[in-house]
């Protein structure tokens, strides 16, 4: 049994009209995170006990800086989309809105902090 009107089923978007956007963004970021995540985890293997100078030099490599910024953006976007669904499922009432707002702000803050840190290191910060 379907609860959708026939018209809505044709349009396929659900009552909020933006469900497919969330779904698509979650999949798109998931696909991007397969290579980005694997790259970072295996690159980290080479740095694990690295001296500060080695880690700094690694981040400052142009290709690594670009991939790290892409990772930070994609990861935090994917993380927000996922946590949003979990919060919507388990938190209710006024607390739900408050939690969503705090979590979204926190993700933007972390993304900007991460991007700034990579650029700063690339520009010679931390030496």
């Amino acid at each position: 049994m379907s609860l959708q009107t026939p018209l809505r089923r044709v349009l396929g978007l659900g009552s909020a009209k933006e469900g497919s956007g969330h779904w698509w963004a979650q999949r798109l970021t998931a696909v991007a995170l397969v290579p980005l995540g694997l790259w970072f985890v295996f690159a980290a293997l080479g740095l694990e006990h690295g001296q500060h100078e080695i880690v700094r030099a690694w981040i400052a490599e142009p290709a690594n800086s670009i991939l790290l910024i892409l990772l930070v953006i994609t990861l935090l976007y994917h993380s927000y989309l996922g946590l949003q669904v979990v919060i919507e499922d388990y938190v209710h009432g006024a607390l739900k809105i408050a939690t969503l707002v705090i979590v979204q702000f926190l993700h933007v803050l972390l993304a900007v902090g991460g991007i700034y840190a990579v650029i700063s290191t690339t520009a010679g910060g931390g030496s």
Binding site: L75, L110, A117, G125, G126
Partner: peptide, 14 residues
């Protein structure tokens, strides 16, 4: 992600 970003900021901080 908190630790990842914290680690990146620590590298940049010195």
């Amino acid at each position: 992600t908190l630790v990842l970003i914290g680690w990146l900021i620590a590298v940049a901080s010195g």
